[in-house]
Design a protein around this nucleic acid. Structure first.
Lengths: 263, 263
DNA sequence: AGAAGGACCAGTGGTCCGTA
DNA sequence: AGAAGGACCAGTGGTCCGTA
């Protein structure tokens, strides 16, 4: 795994080096009952998340070692409070970067985005180890439980809507890194924004599905890093729609409905 | 499949021959948009469910062909109503029967019980075919959606709590039919009730799990007819508890924790 | 008493839309 | 404007407990 080299790719400010602490926590998965608790406590040591509250209240010492759920959990929700309202910092937005390129300014690059998927996978593996240890039912996918676990372990920069949003981009990265890289370079050169790049990622994935009999679930499941992600609804719909079109036109030209195995 | 011979095993009264109509509906799975609707309508022909309302109201003609969801759906919920309360008939309770034995009186036998699991599998396959046809996400398990589908198709005698209740019994039947049959004979002979038989089904399944490295999920998944059922919580817990005990005692006697591959 | 199943509930997958 | 993510919602897995 080249995972750790990527830590450096996340940028200064909020999103700088938000990784790292889950590595201790991972352990061997051989612990006992209190593994969850151990995890959360264990994260404290090398923590480097920052919450940089910009608001009036809570300017106190939260930079280095603020991992106690009790301490910051209790007072965080000041939205409904009467007096001081603290603004919660978000992650820096993504920009289209080339492979290996570090995003500059208050931005995050796409290598960092993909790295978040790898982190989720590591959190899933931990959740699985704990579940097996306890004889509980064991998730195969990145579920709500895994996102909750990630948050508890201090990875506040990971959240479900974000991860779901870019799954098909990660899929392309997994399934055909060359095409993925080429697309990134092209969109960076053209100065496109992340939304445009994201949209463009659908087409090559659908093309891959076309070559493999249109079974996007099978394609996800066959890939060890991709199999833990739910197939995005829109990707599924695009595959289905495209298959219908292809089937219709190939039936006109006389090709069979399943001519993805040509000879 | 010997499925159809079993239809005869369901008894007179409520639970007599409640099967059969889903066979037409199954079709080739090659239909289009309206397959769901077709199903429900198609079920009408050979329907033989009876709802035998015993209450004061609704003694009308409901015996032969009352499959319109509109007709009986609207007026069924009279519990909250002021005037007439109609009592809804339940399925006959199960009794412990030998393999091949037809239950007598207002009872259902265990072959019939296991047959319900096969029916659920057929309903699942139909749901899967429809989902694939439509390019929607496709369940691998008997989900709420499948139970809803079964009900729509007229199989009112199938419901989630019942099916979940006896999963481990069906598991034993799938995994070691000889042991399952022997247990049935023994419990019938002793005049035990269904509850006692059901309880007794746990132990042999746990024993099978012990021989195969305690992974009850893997055991379920490896079996084509069992893999579509969620592992029951209690069975999972029993396997886990038993493994812990075994591991503890074998570590005392010097055996390794994974001595299920002896040589 | 033993048993069938309606109906409830906590937590899920999915993603909108108020926020920055 | 483009984008991140809190928070909501319909439908899920799980099974209790009022019913017969």
């Amino acid at each position: 795994d080249t995972t750790h080299a990527l830590d450096a790719l996340s940028q200064e400010g909020l999103s700088e080096e938000p990784v790292q602490q889950e590595k201790e926590a991972a352990g061997s998965g051989g612990g006992v009952g209190g593994v969850w608790e151990m995890m959360v406590a264990g994260g404290r040591k090398t923590q480097r998340r920052r919450k940089n509250y910009k608001g009036r209240s809570r300017m106190a010492s939260m930079d280095e070692d603020d991992d106690d759920d009790e301490t910051d959990g209790a007072e965080d929700d000041e939205n409904g409070g009467g007096g001081g309202v603290s603004e919660r910092q978000r992650e820096h937005p993504f920009i289209v970067t080339e492979p290996g390129e570090v995003a500059r300014g208050k931005k995050n690059g796409l290598d960092y985005l993909f790295h978040l998927y790898e982190q989720c996978r590591e959190f899933l593996i931990q959740v699985q180890n704990i579940a097996k240890e306890r004889g509980e039912k064991c998730p195969n996918k990145v579920t709500n439980q895994v996102f909750r676990f990630a948050k508890k372990a201090g990875a506040n920069y990971i959240n479900k809507p974000k991860m779901r949003h870019y799954v098909h981009c990660y899929a392309l990265h997994c399934l055909d890194e060359d095409v993925s890289n080429a697309l990134r370079r092209a969109f960076k050169e053209r100065g496109e924004n992340v939304g445009a790049w994201r949209q463009a990622c659908y087409k090559p994935v659908v093309a891959i599905a076309a070559r493999q009999g249109w079974d996007i679930d099978a394609i996800f499941n066959a890939h060890p890093r991709l199999s833990i992600w739910y197939v995005p609804t829109k990707l599924r719909q695009l595959c289905h729609a495209e298959r219908s079109i292809t089937a219709a036109s190939s039936s006109i030209t006389g090709g069979g409905p399943t001519d993805h195995l040509p000879f």
